[in-house]
Design a binder for these strands. Structure first.
Lengths: 214, 214
DNA sequence: TCCGTAATTATGCAAGTGTATAATTACTAA
DNA sequence: TTAGTAATTATACACTTGCATAATTACGGA
């Protein structure tokens, strides 16, 4: 009989990887990057630590995958709420609101992001993910701004729309950051309201939707 | 004679603390938070590791002091360039420009900041420093905005000036972040230019200074 | 000049780290 | 039913970590 090992079932690679990634993100969000050790990750995922090296060639690689996962989740969260229907201005408005309210604005999500972002200077894969994520967000914003301006009958040179997108992106990022870092400093809905007002001023357009319920 | 120890001189506590703090910041900026071990810090500071526990009750305490130091340096850098003389609009303009050009905008400074900021959720002292730093920056911005508006003969309700300050702060933070994270994505002076244009639009004022040299 | 004190160095320690490897076990296909 | 194989677990290893403590040394006041 020898020593009794814990029983296990074989699972598809994608499921195992996802479990490891989720465990990594949970640990990092709850207790910081330092808490995401191979043993803690494996424990939280309910498997043995050998699995990390089996599915990822190194812990570093798992971290990169977790970063990618987190950023994709945030991207999807901003795209979820009806950025598809309605006028361009409406879609832009929804996009901004989604970006500046929970669950996108969230202390855990912000801390997680910060725990990753300092790595982009030293890790090429992390840098690449950051670059891709940033441009993806900004390009979507730029498309919405351009469409909203055209919709309002304004001619907008591409260079100007680009600068608008950079500026609006910065407003959103800044407010998102501050909402995550000091959650008690802002009333509910305040970040979105300030974001919309600022973006309207920057691109020279007004949003027409009625006040949202608080 | 026994074993030969390295010779040393006694130095004032402030000097030792500063050496340790500087070493910590350098290591964290160059190689990330994980590289700032007690041994590496002591080596870089040119003293033995026992000094860390002698001047700080724990490594954590040194990290907090280093964070405080870094944020104060950034604060001073934004205050340096003539935010004292000239019209309020000029001072606001200088403040924004200083915040959106090197050495404030800097990949190392940004990575350093990110390496710290994820700790504010778990460490009360870090959280306190962040809160203080954030409000200090925003309050200075709010004062400048209020003065600039009054100067232009506009009446501005305090609540409105507050919202303006939150928004302008977000623009600056966002641009600062993006400039540090993707230094090649923006031309020299572009961040400051976009920042000034956006802030002018948000508070409804124009900056009159001539174009700055690139 | 010399002694006491505190700063400083050196060393030790228990715990934890990522990774490598060996031992087992579940599942598949014949 | 039974091999074979790949997934999974368990364990070992070399190294690093933060902290504690003992041994030394510089310096100021008598």
């Amino acid at each position: 009989m020898s020593t009794s090992r814990r029983s296990f079932t074989r699972e598809p690679p994608e499921q195992r990887k996802e479990a490891l990634i989720t465990a990594t993100l949970t640990l990092m969000a709850e207790a910081g990057p330092a808490a995401a050790t191979v043993r803690a990750i494996a424990d939280k995922a309910g498997i043995s630590q050998g699995m990390i090296r089996h599915y990822f060639s190194t812990k570093e690689e798992l971290i990169v995958a977790a970063y990618e996962h987190h950023m994709q989740a945030m991207t999807e969260a901003t795209a979820a709420q009806g950025s598809q229907t309605g006028t361009a201005a409406d879609r832009l408005e929804n996009f901004v609101i989604a970006s500046l309210t929970p669950p996108v604005v969230d202390p855990s999500a912000m801390a997680l992001w910060a725990g990753f972002i300092h790595m982009i200077r030293r890790d090429a894969a992390m840098r690449d993910t950051h670059r891709r994520t940033y441009y993806n967000f900004r390009d979507r914003l730029e498309a919405l701004i351009g469409a909203a301006l055209r919709e309002a009958g304004q001619i907008a040179p591409p260079a100007k729309v680009r600068r608008h997108a950079i500026a609006c992106n910065a407003v959103i990022d800044g407010l998102w950051l501050e909402g995550g870092a000091l959650p008690d400093a802002f009333d509910e809905g305040e970040l979105a309201e300030i974001g919309l007002t600022s973006i309207a001023a920057i691109i020279g357009l007004e949003f027409h939707k009625k006040e949202r319920a608080l």
